[in-house]
Nucleic acid binder design. Structure first.
Lengths: 152, 152
DNA sequence: CCCACTCGGTTTCGTGAAGCAACTGACGTT
DNA sequence: AACGTCAGTTGCTTCACGAAACCGAGTGGG
């Protein structure tokens, strides 16, 4: 994504997209969620240019979504692991996947499934009301919050 | 996002991002979810260039996420409404917002809240197991699905 | 000892998308 | 007649992306 900044928007979506909204970034996070950790693995898995991958990994480390750790000395080798905030991005990423599964999947069904490791059940992403449980999209309202009209 | 295509990836996330992963696109959908419908409203709300907005709206209409309807004759005026698939994008978009609220919010709290119109309760996005209900991110496994190894 | 190869990048350079400003054109208002 | 609004299009500049070459530390083979 060019420029990558969205100035003058008091919006958590815009702020989040400034970190993960560039081209490739969410796919890098998807790969990280699937267990990819090393530079060359990302490279072959994504088909991304090396300089762009280098840039994105640096930025993700800088914003606290990935952690760069040395897994070998002589020669020095690094790997990139998701931090806790990074792992929380599974929710929006899998929600995008779920949408694609529903609207863009091929004839053979979705390429990947999400399972609950404890019971083996299928997992979906949903809106959940604190009182009522799952909520259909039609029953949602987005309203002003406390941080809306503050200089930032 | 440049090029905007992610070739050779059998992945619903990549396919979804080819439609909505370009710069500005998810913010246009956010605005549409907030009730913005007209060209100039998007323009002033986003601070986007006119030609880019024109391009994004065309592409979103083409991919069935927005609908272009005439709301006035003489002069002809159009508005852009979300389709049902488009409204379903509230889930990933609000999940991104929720992540931003948690990790990037200012001192005054989140700028926007999601409420359940029926009961007025707060709404959050969550992983939901078909057997167990809400699932923490640490208990998820992403496994191969039926559509993984098919020529596409 | 020399050559090839791996991993994890950096450098260089051409292309093309984004951003800005100006223009268009149909209409409405004063 | 002059001005304003809405919904764009056109032209120009800038900057991010993509491809390929290069780099440096180390491993393995002959």
């Amino acid at each position: 994504m060019l420029g990558r900044l969205y100035d003058g928007q008091n919006c958590s979506i815009a702020r989040t997209l400034e970190l993960v909204g560039e081209r490739w970034t969410l796919l890098i996070i998807r790969d990280a969620l699937l267990g990819v950790r090393r530079f060359d693995q990302f490279l072959t898995s994504l088909g991304i240019a090396r300089n762009v991958l280098s840039d994105r990994l640096d930025r993700l480390v800088e914003s606290g979504i990935l952690e760069r750790t040395q897994y070998q000395e002589r020669p020095v080798r690094w790997e990139y692991n998701l931090t806790d905030p990074g792992r929380e991005l599974a929710l929006p990423v899998l929600a995008l996947m779920q949408w694609g599964d529903r609207h863009l999947a091929g004839p053979n069904g979705p390429p990947r499934l999400v399972r609950h490791t404890i019971c083996g059940g299928g997992v979906a992403q949903q809106h959940l009301c604190t009182n009522c449980g799952p909520v259909p999209g039609a029953e949602l309202a987005i309203v002003a919050g406390p941080g809306l009209h503050t200089a930032s």
